[in-house]
């Protein structure tokens, strides 16, 4: 009996190890393709706190460069952005972030408020798989799942990714036990240039009312920041194309909400000239997102607001921060110069 028990325990252990190994193997690594899938997990590698945390979708992680903010204003920051990050995911990411640190300001990009229901299973995983397990992750999963999904596939990603066994590449083996850092404090650098050729209006909609659930989460984020004594700031990134259009009707609703709640809101769409954006050089995908040159201009512009209006002090000279950021800046410049 004892022998049977020992043997069965060994078999069970071997099975669990085998499944664990396969799970690690088949999970997407996001190192060379779809790198935005790696962004959320990188936050946990941070060793210092941040003055500002940006939260939102791709418009955030392609628009603000923390190294620029440090270099020009001595403000430390992190971008907790991910592809098609839905507003409830932003809320839970904020909730989680505020458990790790208390920044002076949280900046949220409002574009995702247009979504009232879970959208895409693949994007959900790109945001949620990277989160560490916590009450916030459970909440984010429950709020985000589409009808075809189930909770178990987040607990055991093997259930979701097992079919990748037939499409494994060298990347899956290379990054089995470790990951490279693909972002610069959450900023995903794009150095290409694909000019925006024309301004286009959005496709007319039957209903311009933003979903109520979006405002519910917006209010939850505001309340959370208020509770923690963090300045909550709303922005809309300067990008605006036909496929990803920000309607004036939507903007009016955000302005109204922000004014009612006493929250500052910056819509950068109409400020592009003031920021100095040149749509023939500052975008890598015809105006949908900014490239590094555009992002640096926007960061520089917004950094001034953060410093002037919100009194974020220059922390350069702090030896610990200087050392950390010197390394980050070096990596940033290396990639910007095409050396990595």
């Amino acid at each position: 009996m004892k022998k049977t028990l020992i043997l069965c325990t060994c078999i069970l252990l071997a099975t669990v190890l085998c499944l664990g190994f396969v799970q690690m193997l088949v999970m997407p690594k996001y190192m060379t393709t779809s790198r935005d899938g790696a962004l959320i997990a990188e936050y946990y590698n941070e060793t210092t706190n941040h003055d500002v945390v940006f939260i939102g979708d791709c418009e955030v992680y392609e628009s603000f460069t923390p190294p620029t903010l440090w270099q020009e204003y001595g403000i430390t920051s992190y971008v907790r952005g991910s592809a098609q990050q839905l507003i409830w995911q932003s809320y839970y990411l904020l909730e989680e972030t505020l458990k790790y640190e208390t920044p002076k300001a949280v900046v949220f990009n409002v574009f995702s408020i247009k979504y009232g229901v879970p959208q895409n299973e693949a994007y959900n995983h790109m945001t949620l798989d990277g989160m560490k397990w916590s009450q916030s992750k459970v909440g984010a999963i429950n709020a985000s799942m589409t009808e075809e999904e189930n909770f178990l596939s987040y607990v055991f990603p093997l259930l979701r990714y097992h079919s990748r066994w037939s499409e494994l590449t060298g990347e899956d083996w290379q990054y089995l036990y470790h990951r490279d850092t693909v972002s610069h404090n959450g900023y995903l650098m794009q150095t290409g240039i694909a000019p925006k050729t024309r301004d286009a209006d959005g496709i007319p909609l039957a209903n311009y009312s933003l979903p109520a659930v979006g405002f519910e989460y917006l209010e939850k984020m505001r309340a959370l920041c208020e509770e923690k004594g963090v300045e909550f700031i709303l922005i809309k990134a300067p990008t605006n194309t036909r496929g990803y259009y920000w309607y004036n009707e939507w903007d009016a609703q955000i302005i109204s909400w922000a004014s009612e709640k006493g929250v500052d809101y910056y819509n950068f769409i109409s400020l592009d000239e003031e920021i100095g954006l040149d749509w023939s050089t500052d975008t890598y995908d015809k105006g949908v997102h900014l490239n590094v040159y555009g992002a640096e201009k926007l960061t520089s512009y917004f950094g001034n607001i953060l410093a002037e209006k919100y009194g974020l002090s220059d922390r350069r000279g702090d030896s610990e921060l200087d050392a950390v950021w010197a390394e980050k800046l070096a990596a940033y410049q290396k990639e910007r110069n095409g050396e990595s």
């Binding site: 069965c8 069970l12 099975t15 999904e149 596939s153 979701r160 097992h162 066994w165």
Partner: peptide, 23 residues
């Protein structure tokens, strides 16, 4: 019993990896 347990575990591993299920 031991052979049974080993066989069940082996089949579960094979099904979880190679089975057509999920999204």
């Amino acid at each position: 019993p031991v052979a049974w347990f080993a066989a069940v575990c082996a089949f579960v591993v094979v099904i979880l990896i190679f089975g057509a299920y999920g999204i």
